[in-house]
Write a protein that binds this DNA or RNA. Structure first.
Lengths: 167, 167
DNA sequence: ATGTATGCAAACCATTTGCAATGAC
DNA sequence: GTCATTGCAAATGGTTTGCATACAT
């Protein structure tokens, strides 16, 4: 895709996330392509987790066309730049999320919804925690259970017709 | 495979793990096949995590032949019986482990080795923890970092030739 | 005797790869 | 102009499925 010469240079946006990505690209001799920024912009607009498919649909829905390979490529770069994380929750396909403040993932094993909750106590605990013969870099805490919506539904309807998660 | 009539009935072994599986099978009208017990026995002999491939190789190496589908089938049953858990660590293929006491997983992002550590403080913290509009069933804590072996190696050899984990 | 479980091969599907055409520098 | 990046289509690899045969009940 060609860059519209009329818009200001979005690759040096004062958005810190965009700037961080640009710096990563520069530092590694990688090019600032329109596709990469389009993908990043869409990722920034997502609140929470998304799959590759959801991301691409969202971009397509916006009238911008990127190939699946480019989506994978950019997502990979964002992970190397430590801006994005990939999670595989039990029984589900891979999901991605921007790296922000540490948080716990609550995964409903009935509907598959994932919710993030901040937990300063836990974060403090982990910060202080040291391991034998192991230097920690980052961690993921996944809590599996049932969200209140599904709990209400299953009280009404014992045989989980709404179960989109387990087959 | 036929059952050797000379051996005592291993499906009612007094091993509590075997017994639990037998009860699960019975309760669900499933059959006590030799394959299922052979797979369970090998899983019990493994200390820590294993992949499907490793499990099957181990069984084959023991002179017992099971098909890949049967391995998947039995592993699935063991998960439904809440005796086995599947984990997908960052950038690695699925690994399984028996469900025992809760523990933290330390994953070395250089060599891919996974170590379990018990952490009673954390377990207590999680037991007490309640979430808004969410009922927890179980959790997984993954800590990514570098094991001391890889730390030593990378001090000697800056360009990680031993990196079997990241490509 | 009945119908579940196994083993095989084919199907599946998310992800990766090879390569010609495109476009950033 | 050069060479990284894109898009496409084909390949990959772990997992699942369909079906005939074997076997637990």
């Amino acid at each position: 895709m060609k860059i519209d010469p009329n818009i200001e240079d979005f690759t040096s946006s004062n958005n810190p996330v965009v700037r961080k990505f640009s710096e990563y690209l520069d530092a590694h001799g990688l090019r600032r392509t329109t596709e990469r920024y389009a993908i990043l912009n869409h990722i920034m607009s997502i609140n929470g987790h998304f799959t590759i498919e959801e991301l691409q649909k969202m971009i397509d829905g916006d009238g911008f066309r990127v190939s699946r390979s480019t989506v994978y490529n950019t997502v990979e770069l964002l992970m190397e730049a430590k801006m994005l994380r990939r999670h595989v929750f039990e029984g589900m396909q891979a999901q991605y999320e921007r790296i922000t403040l540490p948080h716990t993932h609550l995964i409903c094993t009935v509907c598959g919804k994932v919710k993030e909750v901040r937990d300063p106590n836990f974060a403090a605990f982990m910060n202080a925690r040291r391991f034998n013969a192991f230097t920690a870099d980052h961690y993921s805490l996944y809590v599996y259970g049932m969200c209140s919506t599904c709990a209400r539904k299953s009280k009404r309807n014992k045989d989980d017709k709404n179960n989109k998660y387990k087959k």
